[in-house]
Amino acid sequence: MTYPTERYLLELSRRGHDALLEKVRGTVRIDVAREGETDHWLLTVARGDLRVARDAGPADAVVSGRQTCWDGLVSGSARALDAWLRNELTVEGRFELLTVLDRLMPGYPGARHPRDVVREGGRAA
């Protein structure tokens, strides 16, 4: 059975290009710890082009966490840096690639455009 992180990563590989990552070159291995096993995904970023594959090989950064943590990140309800600060994620290798990962995650569910907030009288979500 597929899980949210898996679905998100597969979708990411279909996205192909991200203009904000054009300066980035590197590989991130995403280790998702699930019951009794760990899934390995390799994200390759080369001048904004993205590729995701199931791969347990070496990478510039290895980011590991439990499936629940990853599922939170791909839903937008949690952020990679906070998860790292809480030690729900660990990073080995090039730390700045964690930021790249954060950029690829969706926004907070229900977050609003500031203009909409003003129109609605400024109430916080």
């Binding site: 700045e96 930021t99 995650m105 969706p106 926004g107 907070y108 977050a111 609003r112 907030v117």
Partner: peptide, 11 residues
């Protein structure tokens, strides 16, 4: 630049 905002996040 590395931490330039990318998303809408009310918090």
């Amino acid at each position: 630049s590395a931490f330039q905002g990318t998303q809408l996040d009310d918090f």
